[in-house]
Amino acid sequence: MGNGTSIGRVRGLGSSHAGTHHWLAQRLTAVGNLIVIPFLGISLALLPAHDYVTVHGWAAKPLSATMLVLLVLNTLYHARLGVQVMLEDYIHEEGGKVASWMLINFVPAAAAVFGIVSIIRIALGAA
């Protein structure tokens, strides 16, 4: 960003034109969450017990494992979009913006990989 000419002072400060995609993705994942989160809640409420063998056996079923992967991906994506909006409202310094940008990209990606590796191990690993 320059500080000489009028155009130099404003260049790079406008819209990134990514807002519509962010807005739509937020709503699409919101609807997805209305399916995957009640699936988890109802499944856990209906389990006869919550000991390791019962819970592991439930999570290892193909339908459960599929829904758990979708749950991890959809909730983390939705959360990442929402936390971004929150941080944009409260973080105004350049350093904070860069730190926030790394936080909302690195943390959900690492969390998603951890969650999916765990679910694959549950579904495919020896019980």
Partner: peptide
């Protein structure tokens, strides 16, 4: 929303990781 994002998803991942790690971790 932020409570669910930070606390809820952390707890979900701990829970999934503990099931994947075996009976003791669970």
């Amino acid at each position: 929303g932020n409570g669910l994002a930070f606390v809820g998803l952390s707890l979900l991942l701990w829970w999934l990781g503990s099931i994947a790690s075996g009976p003791e971790a669970y």
